[in-house]
């Protein structure tokens, strides 16, 4: 394992989870470029001490990682006790410890309560406060000491200490992230759409032919209202179009703009269909004039009236997401082409 891998492995634990792979990949590339430059200058591969020297010059990994965190708070009582470099880690450790303390105290008191022991609110409260105080003081003192050491010797750290290998899962995620950003439609995306749309299409066809599948025994009393007849063909069209789109992108994964435009058109059409459905007010009708059929139709309509709102919100969110993706990719390719 190279010093660079050891360094990245250590750094990975300190970086914000959401951007970890991306940052590691970029830093790795930057360090590798510097090492390549140095090798060309010397005309030979770098020795391990030389590689360690390059890593050491980059500063303490704590400082490097802190540059990427948005939390730039400090802890001060008069003089600054914990600076912006250590503060994100201090806040993280403190939150973890306090959370753990709450869980342990909660579990202990719950166990006592379940076993029939009398629990006093005052005792619970004082226990929680005492534990919080102890944790707060202990964690703060440790971090204040580390801060003092770090501010005295900011470059003092040993790259040889980082022995743990970079996890294979992190490496995989880095590669996947890059693949995503290479602006190709992934095979996973196309196959998922193909399967989901195929199943949805078969399901819609089956429901249309056999309402029993959705209404159950009530199928002898109620049926679809006319609004479903109006949106049936457009719905089938959306499914078919999604299948065709996925097949094309399987063959041509670099047709990203085609995917984006198709998604906007299909999502907008779906939104329009939901709009038609929302204002239909009647979605099922009784098959006969008996009071039983009327009652069931009325109950089902009430349920659909409630359930259609979340569906509309999801469809709207999806349409906005597709539009934003199209806009972003369009803007990028526009600037890339000059």
């Amino acid at each position: 394992m190279t010093p660079l891998e050891r360094y990245l492995s250590f750094l990975s634990k300190l970086l914000p989870a959401g951007q970890r792979e991306d940052i590691l990949r970029e830093l790795s590339e930057d360090i590798q470029s510097e090492m390549d430059d140095k090798e060309s200058e010397l005309g030979r591969p770098l020795t391990e001490p030389e590689q360690l020297q390059i890593l050491k010059r980059r500063g303490n990994p704590l400082q490097v990682a802190a540059g990427y965190t948005n939390n730039k708070g400090t802890l001060s009582f008069g003089p600054q006790l914990i600076g912006p470099v250590l503060f994100p880690f201090y806040a993280r450790v403190l939150a973890f410890n306090l959370g753990l303390t709450f869980v342990i105290i909660g579990t202990v008191f719950a166990a006592l309560s379940l076993s029939g022991q009398p629990i006093h609110v005052g005792s619970l409260f004082s226990n929680v406060l005492l534990q919080l105080f102890v944790q707060l003081v202990a964690v703060t003192i440790i971090f204040v000491l580390v801060e003092k050491h770090l501010s005295r010797q900011p470059q003092e750290w040993d790259a040889k200490e980082f022995e743990k290998p970079l996890k294979a899962s992190i490496r995989d995620r880095i590669d996947k992230k890059i693949q995503l950003q290479m602006r190709e439609v992934s095979r996973f995306d196309s196959i998922s759409v193909l399967i989901a749309s195929g199943i949805a299409l078969l399901w819609i066809q089956s429901l249309w032919a056999k309402p029993f599948l959705i209404f159950g025994p009530a199928a002898s009393l109620i049926t679809f209202a006319p609004v479903w007849h109006r949106i049936y063909l457009p719905t089938v069209f959306i499914m078919l179009a999604a299948i065709v789109r996925a097949c094309i992108n399987l063959a041509q994964p670099n047709w990203v703009r085609f995917r984006d435009v198709a998604a906007v058109v299909l999502d907008a059409t779906a939104l329009a269909l939901i709009y038609v459905l929302m204002f239909a007010h009647t979605w099922v009708v009784p098959l006969d004039a008996t009071s039983g059929a009327q009652h069931i139709a009325s109950a089902v309509n009430q349920w659909i009236a409630i359930g259609i709102w979340p569906a509309a919100v999801i469809a709207l969110f999806q349409a906005i997401k597709s539009f934003v993706r199209l806009y972003k990719n369009w803007r990028w390719s526009g600037t890339a082409n000059g």
């Binding site: 990949r25 970029e26 890059i178 950003q181 803007r331 990028w332 600037t335 890339a336």
Partner: peptide
């Protein structure tokens, strides 16, 4: 704007000014 792209046989993240 940024984009990961291959250059010199390695993936690199290229940056450029947006409009």
């Amino acid at each position: 704007l940024s984009e990961w792209r291959e250059a010199d046989k390695r993936n690199k993240r290229f940056y450029r000014l947006s409009p």
